[in-house]
Design a protein around this nucleic acid. Structure first.
Lengths: 199, 199
DNA sequence: CTGCCGATTGACTGGTCAATCAATGGAGGT
DNA sequence: ACCTCCATTGATTGACCAGTCAATCGGCAG
């Protein structure tokens, strides 16, 4: 018997968790909140996940691996370093535009929660910085970028700037219209790349 | 009887809290940890502060007002926008060099925990962004900076880049020697300002 | 029809802490 | 000596919640 819609409860729980985590924050949500939001019994969460932490874990890994892949892809596909960084920035901004709640959870609860939760994922997070640093280093080797900037510094500044802008949208510090997204991405890439060019 | 050292217990508790928060993170520290670290009875913490939150609150406000003052000062004192931004970056980096534990707490537990806790302080945090944005806007008016970058975007990128570098040091993602601090500050300011200049 | 097994349920337990509060101490004033 | 005031103490309480588990459900194979 093909259960047409197996009503994938696991997925249901993950999606509910995104909403609840985004709304209340990880610490403030009880496992029962997730279960309620998913319309599922309390215990079922523990059937699919070993702990509340693992739910967040899963969400992070799922998403972060996409980012890592996107950076690799940008590095392989695009030609100039400027285009590569542009592609990376675009991917991140688009991720936010496409699913703001998930991105909010990733950023607020993991990336920036380097104490509590992100501790566990420092390694994966660092891998992203390093991939971006590689793009910068290649740009320096080809003469597109000046050589006196440590690639890792440039990478972290670049990523930090992006994350700060996303945070601004997440918390309503700065307005978030479609035009703003595009403008922000263009300006960010232009400014940083211009700053990285040889004088 | 002049109690030569009034052994300001309130201060003692605050300083102890910095150490414990930095070591374990806000959520993981129990009020008794703070009391133990300060060598003081549990209840005394509640004599001076109405809650565990208020301890963190106090630390943040104390420090953030210094940052706001430093930005104002930089805006008044320095001449070129580049020097102004340089002074701001210097102040933040020096704050970290001078008291890494406090800065770790401020950044990790408040600025970046904009959900749970920082919510309360969004307004103060925003004020810092706006002051920096003003520096950028003035730089545009004087023709030092290009006019097509929204000052608030530039400000948040600038601050985000700084914060990310600090986080790198805090979590050991990037090495932290005195030379690194100075190099990072110079490169950051140079890169960002070059990127903000008219082409 | 029957038995098996994984999915699903939700009441319950155990442990953790934030916050309270009644008691104690000791400095200064009268 | 005595009193008042406030700092200080730390045991206790009350709430909260993650994680457990025994019971039930329901599809399917034999």
């Amino acid at each position: 018997m093909a259960q047409a819609p197996p009503a994938d409860k696991r997925r249901l729980i993950l999606d509910a968790a995104i909403r609840v985590f985004a709304r209340q924050g990880f610490h403030a949500t009880r496992v029962s909140d997730i279960a309620d939001e998913a319309g599922v019994a309390y215990g079922l969460v523990y059937h699919y996940f070993s702990s509340k932490d693992e739910v967040l874990n899963e969400l992070f890994i799922e998403r972060w691996s996409l980012l890592l892949a996107a950076i690799e892809e940008a590095d392989k596909t695009a030609v100039s370093p400027r285009e590569k960084l542009g592609a990376v920035a675009t991917f991140i901004f688009e991720s936010y535009r496409h699913d703001p709640e998930l991105m909010k959870v990733i950023i607020v609860e993991v990336t920036r929660a380097a104490n509590s939760f992100g501790r566990t994922h420092l390694e994966e997070i660092r891998r992203a910085y390093e991939s971006i640093a590689k793009i910068v280093a290649d740009g320096q080797a080809s003469g597109d970028f000046r050589g006196d900037v440590a690639p890792m510094f440039a990478s972290m500044s670049f990523y930090g700037a992006i994350e700060q802008l996303l945070s601004g949208w997440i918390f309503g510090t700065i307005p978030a219209s479609d035009a703003d997204f595009d403008q922000a991405r263009d300006l960010l890439v232009t400014t940083i790349c211009d700053g990285l060019e040889p004088r």
